[in-house]
């Protein structure tokens, strides 16, 4: 069901039918746990980008982010049989990602690599290559600015913001994923937003 075409995976989504378009994450995960590899493909395609960005922004290093991203999915694969449908899939997935990041962070202590800006810039250049030069400069500036502001946030506030933006989580889900209470999650998100907005307005 999976076709490799010059290094790229192409989903055979035409054959997936309802599963591809309408099936819930939870149902897909249960299908995968019972041995359906196609269900995993659908699930992966649905969530790979947000999870990757969550990791990338959190780690601020592409290499580490890729490594952690891969580890998260490998953990999910290995833990597929322990998945319980009562838990929301995104909460479970981002909990895995959160724990992965925390583990890495603890191992590295405070060794957050500072050369992230160039890498993020590289990615941004790749993404915006079709826009005209003036627009591109503007976009690059705003991306730079937002990235800097985001990087300047404390880890816990940045994570809460990323969970909201990338996973579309509610405050309750953010609290559940990060293992904090509702009020703390709300407070972190409020601080993050205020700081980002005030930073953008200053510019």
């Amino acid at each position: 069901m999976l076709l490799i075409d010059s290094g790229h995976y192409r989903s055979t989504s035409d054959t997936l039918g309802i599963m591809d378009k309408g099936a819930s994450d939870e149902r897909l995960m249960l299908s995968y746990a019972s041995g359906d590899a196609v269900a995993f493909e659908v699930l992966y395609l649905r969530h790979k980008a947000p999870v990757y960005r969550y990791m990338l922004k959190l780690c601020r290093n592409k290499t580490i982010a890729e490594e952690l991203f891969q580890e998260v999915w490998m953990k999910l694969i290995n833990a597929r049989e322990s998945y319980v449908a009562s838990a929301k899939f995104t909460t479970w997935l981002y909990k895995l990602a959160h724990n992965q990041f925390i583990d890495h962070y603890r191992k590295q202590t405070v060794r957050i690599v500072e050369d992230h800006s160039t890498e993020i810039d590289d990615i941004a250049h790749d993404q915006q290559s079709t826009v005209n030069p003036e627009q591109q400069v503007q976009i690059e500036q705003s991306i730079d600015q937002l990235t800097k502001l985001l990087d300047a946030l404390p880890n816990d506030q940045r994570e809460v913001f990323l969970l909201r933006e990338e996973a579309g989580m509610s405050i309750t889900e953010i609290a559940e994923t990060t293992g904090i209470n509702y009020e703390a999650a709300k407070s972190r998100l409020r601080y993050a937003i205020v700081k980002l907005r005030s930073g953008l307005n200053e510019e």
Partner: peptide
């Protein structure tokens, strides 16, 4: 401003593993 995606070799590795 954020449309980054994982590299194709990651996709390949993860889907193969799955």
């Amino acid at each position: 401003s954020n449309k980054q995606e994982p590299a194709s070799h990651l996709d390949e590795a993860i889907l193969s593993a799955a």
